[in-house]
Each structure stands twice: as C-alpha cells, then as structure tokens.
C-alpha cells in the first residue's frame, strides 16, 4: 500500500457463470485510489461499473487478481471480517436508496451504529449530526414512504456517512433524481468529502455528476478505457 492509497486494484478479473459458460465482466483492471478522492466510474450499461464497486465494497470478490481495501485483500476476508469492514469503514449509497421501510428516518440512519454497539447518547448525537449534514434533521421521525426521492437519497447519504467511513460507494446515486436534487446531493457529498476527508466512489451515466468529479474512470467492456484526472477544486453550479 502506497502512502495515502486506500484502494488498490491489481489485475482484477471477474467472471460470472452464465448458462454453460462464463461471462467476463471485468478484464484485468488496475486502479489505485488515494484517501479523499472524489472519483467516478463512467461507461455504458454493462461495462462493469457496479461489478467493480461491489468488489471494492467487499460484497463480491475478484475471480483473479487482488483487490486491497484499507490494506485488506477482499478475497481473503471471511464473512465476518468483510461484514466488519463494511460496518466500520464502507458506506453504501444505492440507486434505489434501499431504506428500511419499517424504520423511521432516524432509525434508518442509526442502524449501522447499533451494529457497532455505540452507546445511545453518542448514537443520538451522531445521527442528528448526520441528518444535519443532509438537511433532514426535522424529518427524523418520518417513515421512508413519506419522503420525496431527493429526501430519500439524502437519508441514504446520512446513513452511509453517519459512521464516518473511510470510503463511500455510490452506485448511480442520481439515477432517480431530477437535476435540482442531483445538485443538492452532490453538493452535500462534496462537502462531506472536504470536511471529513471521506473518499467517494461513484458510478454514473449522468453528465451532471461527471461535471463535479475530480477523476473520471471510463470503463468499456470490463476494461479501463481512460483514467481522467480533472481536479476540479471547487463545486460550481
């Protein structure tokens, strides 16, 4: 692990069994991410964006090669170890939010902290702080079905960020949002990236999202086509 490097993808290939044969979703990928990056995977549908993010998030493991996340080789982790890695250090944001419907906004955000056995008083402070970041402190007692799409995704962001993870993985976070909401959540995430130093990894088709990224990795047919460093320092509308 190089200094500052928190994710290191080395010769990663991923194949899925399809019928009798196999489908190669990722072909010999090599990538390195530094702490505090705000980077995105971009590419046509089926290019392997989600597959790569899932491997980095330890939800899946490479068929060949090695994926090191925070110094840990994903394919060597036990169920328990990978659960611990996700619980402590990786936040997920999904296209469809995946909020737990029977819990309130507050409880959805609190969930990861419950798993970490954090005492109640501290939990309360952390949850309200996270809801403040996304501007939803007043909605703490609502159920997810009472929220708009933009609010729902902001709750998902709060849930991902409340435990102050090192990495947040956001797979097409704006796919179901309009321009205004997309801008709002990007602004929020950018602030968190700046203030907390959290690394954000996106996948997106969305031009509006691409415009805000520091780094764009173009994938095509499971291979890196181009690794573009843009280095936008400030977020503009």
């Amino acid at each position: 692990m190089k200094n500052g490097s928190i994710i290191s993808i080395k010769n990663v290939t991923k194949r899925f069994p399809v019928g009798e044969g196999e489908f190669t979703a990722l072909k010999n990928i090599n990538l390195e991410f530094q702490s505090g990056e705000f980077a995105g995977l971009v590419g046509p549908s089926g290019s392997g964006k989600t597959t790569l993010l899932n491997i980095i998030g330890s939800l899946d493991s490479p068929t060949e090669g090695e994926a090191l996340v925070l110094g840990k080789s994903i394919s060597k982790l036990s169920h328990k170890e990978s659960a611990l890695l996700r619980n402590k250090h990786i936040g997920f944001i999904f296209q469809v939010y995946n909020l737990l419907p029977v819990y309130t906004v507050y409880e959805n955000v609190e969930f990861a902290l419950l798993l970490q056995n954090i005492p109640k008083v501290q939990r309360q402070k952390m949850v309200m702080e996270a809801l403040d970041w996304v501007g939803l402190a007043s909605m703490a007692d609502k159920k997810p079905d009472k929220l708009s799409g933009g609010e729902g995704q902001r709750v998902a962001i709060a849930r991902a960020i409340v435990k102050k993870p090192v990495i947040v993985i956001a797979d097409e976070p704006s796919a179901n949002l309009d321009a205004e909401n997309t801008y709002a959540i990007l602004k929020t995430m950018r602030e968190l990236n700046k203030n907390l130093g959290t690394t954000f990894l996106f996948s997106t088709h969305d031009e509006k999202v691409m415009g805000h990224l520091d780094r764009i990795i173009h994938l095509r047919d499971g291979a890196v086509e181009e690794d573009e460093i843009i280095n936008v320092k400030t977020l503009t509308k």
């Binding site: 659960a83 611990l84 402590k88 969930f111 798993l115």
Partner: peptide, 16 residues
C-alpha cells in the same frame, strides 16, 4: 431480498 442485501451492506453478517 433487497432488505437482506441492505443489512449485509450495512455490515451485518449473514448469520446475523
């Protein structure tokens, strides 16, 4: 399933 996947992504083990 999605809920189960979400639990796992949030750091629950499958056993949990």
């Amino acid at each position: 399933q999605k809920e189960i996947g979400t639990y796992i992504s949030l750091g629950m083990t499958r056993a949990q």
